[in-house]
Design a protein around this nucleic acid. Structure first.
Ligand code: ZN
Ligand code: ZN
Ligand code: ZN
Ligand code: ZN
Lengths: 142, 142
DNA sequence: GCCCCCAAGGTTATAATATAACTTTAATAG
DNA sequence: CTATTAAAGTTATATTATAACCTTGGGGGC
């Protein structure tokens, strides 16, 4: 029997979660999510666009960006700004703060629970550059 | 008597530090650094280009990007990827890991010592989104 | 001083990433 | 079956960043 596709299962469960929120996981959204899940590494928006477009599934960049924004909003994906790429979230469909270890050699990306900096030290990842940017409201603006 | 310009002092001390490293803080580099120091908020590369260009001090975007890369390398500035902008480093001319609190309302940006996440909680900054990306070498690639 | 070297900057063109603004389609509710 | 509206299509363009190559000029060896 064929190994069940984890991505497809994920999109299945994502569908459930979203519909509980009154939100549709449309075909395009599902396609994008599956591409992200199947990919070994984060994917850029235009790379994603080319993949979908070559299968007749995406019309133009705005469609892809809209879906990506949607997936990030819904907690199903993350944007990695240091490499301008997107990755499926491996932690379930709840928006959450995440931290990433990005290997400059093999391009492997690991999402770590957290963001706990102590987790960075563990697991043998050798940090060369660290980017930490918090967005929100300063004391004066609250 | 006029208040001494902190930016100019900074560039003065930067000159010393760099020349001790055998590196020149040229006029263009000094100009960019002063703009970053004088600015109340981080500045985008093209914004910076316009400022310099209107004073006949920069020829084209590559010049600005080269200087910015240089300043970041030398620990005199930081790049904020979540807003694609650059800011002078307020911690002295040594390359170091930094963390930033970016207010989405007033655009104020504070560089905090660290990156210690506990520092995020202090000072009353209300984090809405947190981006933590470490680049380096994974265990397998070392 | 003169020449050479080479780091810095100038120049042109273009790549890569992202969004604005408007139109059309289609899913759902009533 | 319509009205409503979210999603997707479409066109054009904005924004950010880099490639590739040429020119200039400061500073050391002589
Ligand atoms: Zn996640
Ligand atoms: Zn690796
Ligand atoms: Zn700093
Ligand atoms: Zn504020």
């Amino acid at each position: 029997m064929p190994t069940p596709c984890q991505a497809c299962e994920s999109t299945g469960s994502a569908t459930k979660t979203l519909s509980a929120r009154g939100i549709r996981l449309t075909e395009l959204r599902r396609d994008v999510l599956q591409q992200l899940h199947h990919a070994k590494h984060p994917i850029g928006a235009y790379q994603l666009f080319d993949m979908l477009n070559s299968k007749g599934k995406a019309s133009a960049p705005p469609a892809v960006y809209r879906v990506l924004d949607f997936l990030v909003e819904q907690g199903l994906a993350h944007k990695l700004r240091s490499i301008s790429a997107y990755t499926a979230c491996c932690m379930g469909p709840h928006s959450h703060q995440a931290a990433f270890l990005i290997c400059r050699n093999c391009s492997d990306v690991e999402e770590i629970k957290g963001p706990s900096l102590s987790a960075l030290a563990k697991g043998g990842f050798q940090v060369e550059d660290l980017m930490l940017e918090a967005t929100g409201l300063c004391g004066a603006c609250q």
